[in-house]
Design a protein around this nucleic acid. Structure first.
Lengths: 340, 340
DNA sequence: GACTGGCACTCGACTTGACGGAGTGCCAGG
DNA sequence: CCTGGCACTCCGTCAAGTCGAGTGCCAGTC
């Protein structure tokens, strides 16, 4: 048996009311609050069907109904109309992001903004290095046996590492290295650099090969291995809204998950172009987040994507509003990056 | 009336037992667990006095006693013997910190380690710029109207900012500026740089003054204004240990406080040399942290101090153990920094 | 004078039972 | 297919009662 329009309408009403009130919603209250043109008894029948199909459930006999994860999923996929942001919100976003002075600042402002607007936990990934290109590499001599390697990516990210040289090296040699490295790597996607770096070593004069190899290895680490790991987090305190009712009684597992950068990157990092991804409760692969939902999307200048951002909250979440906000913020950040 | 030795012993026992069990401790249980050579009745009399003096209190009539903030304070000041760390712990610290590749890495490893060892929330301030000296300043031309300013401090910290130039400037001019800037500022304490930067502007050729002034203003921002703001945080999930009993029922205010970098910097940043500071409950100036205790200390190479670190937890905390761990970690980090 | 044993008392935690109400499922009738 | 009615379930709450840990106080002892 398929679900007719009224049943879907009932489901929508249940989701919306439950999200708003945090309480199981019963047939009578539902009929009163909404004007469905039918009686409570009819709604009850519909509810029975919805329950059988797995979209809602009763916490206990003679309580109202609560949406299941599947119910939320159906709601998100077919029932929710995307809320447009209010002009005030748009202005808030613009104003908040406008004053940013550098990439760090942009990311921090964004994550705070997102947390504040959605009243959830917000996560923003720094522009992923693997999607960036090298804008410039700088080698700064610190002493004769140490140089500082600074990599500037076209996305504005800057990474630096200290290199211990195997043999004393004069500033001229460093300058020479710098020139060669830049000639080879500037403009190249970070993901494509390894063979070029290897070539640099191979082409170097034999007596310097040791030194070059040393720099090259640190370079590879910086460019490739440590790449994507940075992100910013804000709004943890929002987890405590709604008592301990959300998250089935304990914030513990959620807080633990939030401490693992790897987990967070998985959550917001796997982005397909211009999609907003919603993971509801059980759909999360991480056990600790089975009671949570994640709304994430990619951002970047124009249509390319250089990183992900998103929010995490209880499954009982205002999906339309959250999705709209996440999308809007991502777009604004993208525009901001495009300006550089 | 002053407190004789036995009363102090009773207080110590109450603190230690309460910390261990999380339950109010009564006279009988106390006499059983410890071998004080006296009867419960005597202990009760002592307790009555301790309560009158404000060191302990009863959650309700006919419950055991619980230390007050003042009680913990007395305990910390006069009753706790510093626990030596176990060799296993020492080894753990060394092993954990050994593999660090750069300053970011050191700080992140430290904060995680601290959270893990103390099972509390850990905070580590990056080496404060205001206490650092300039090791090197690098100006990297990005385009003719943009250069990247990179500042490397002797503590290993690296800060960068993009500078928009008022007029197109060739690479030679940039090199020239770089030489002059370094000649003037290398080795100088960041706090002492402003007049020197001003001098740089004054000494520059009139036709370049505009450009130099522009760089100088960003330089000042980087060196002075934005200085101390960075820190790392870990172990938030530890707040949920011990149920919601700690922190008088709500993590909310604590989580909120942890989101404010300014607050955290105040907590761990105000360090006098080689002191470990303990703030207990009400002693915290921040209202949100009235139910929490903070143990903090400074760290740095040798005897100088370049930053602060510490942990935050419930007033019901193992003070001797925590203090020992915080000190030990600070010393190891200091040693690590001294190696550079 | 300090410590101790004993005793009455207090008060929270827990159990039990009763009750009201919200919400349900089902059924017969429109 | 919808609706009104009815019996039923079961949660939440309140009141009463019990239990036990812990106390304060007092008289007695060393």
């Amino acid at each position: 048996m398929s679900l007719d329009d009224r049943k879907l309408e009932v489901l929508r009403a249940i989701v919306e009311d439950y999200v708003a009130t945090q309480e199981p919603v019963g047939s009578k209250a539902l009929v009163e609050r909404r004007q469905l043109g039918v009686s409570p008894a009819t709604v009850r029948n519909d509810m029975a069907v919805l329950e059988e199909e797995g979209y809602i459930r009763q916490p206990h006999t003679s309580a109202g109904r609560v949406p299941t994860d599947a119910g939320y999923r159906l709601f998100v996929d077919r029932l929710s109309r995307v809320k447009a942001l209010s002009p005030a919100e748009r202005r808030a976003i613009e104003r908040f992001l406008a004053g940013a002075v550098d990439l760090d600042d942009v990311v921090h402002r964004t994550v705070r903004l997102l947390a504040q607007l959605t009243r959830q936990v917000a996560v923003v990934q720094y522009p992923s290095l693997s999607r960036s290109s090298v804008r410039h590499l700088e080698l700064v001599p610190i002493s004769t046996t140490r140089i500082m390697l600074v990599m500037i990516a076209d996305t504005g990210r800057v990474e630096q590492r200290l290199v211990e040289l195997p043999a004393p090296t004069g500033p001229d040699d460093v300058l020479d290295m710098r020139r060669k490295v830049n000639a080879k790597l500037t403009g190249v996607k970070l993901a494509d650099t390894p063979p070029l770096v290897q070539a640099l070593v191979d082409e170097s004069a034999p007596e310097k090969r040791n030194t070059v190899a040393c720099v090259a290895s640190v370079l590879l680490e910086t460019l490739v291995e440590r790449s994507d790991e940075r992100l910013a987090l804000a709004g943890t305190a929002n987890l405590t809204r709604g008592g301990v009712l959300d998250f089935q009684g304990s914030l513990r597992p959620v807080l633990e998950a939030l401490e693992e950068e790897v987990i967070l990157l998985k959550l917001i990092g796997e982005v397909e172009p211009s999609t907003t991804r919603v993971r509801i409760g059980d759909e999360n692969e991480i056990d600790n987040l089975r009671a949570a939902s994640v709304v994430s999307t990619g951002y970047g200048p124009g249509t390319t994507i250089v990183g992900g951002l998103g929010v995490l909250g209880p499954t009982r979440m205002d999906y339309p509003g959250t999705i709209a906000t996440v999308r809007a913020v991502a777009r604004y950040v993208g525009d901001l990056l495009a300006q550089n």
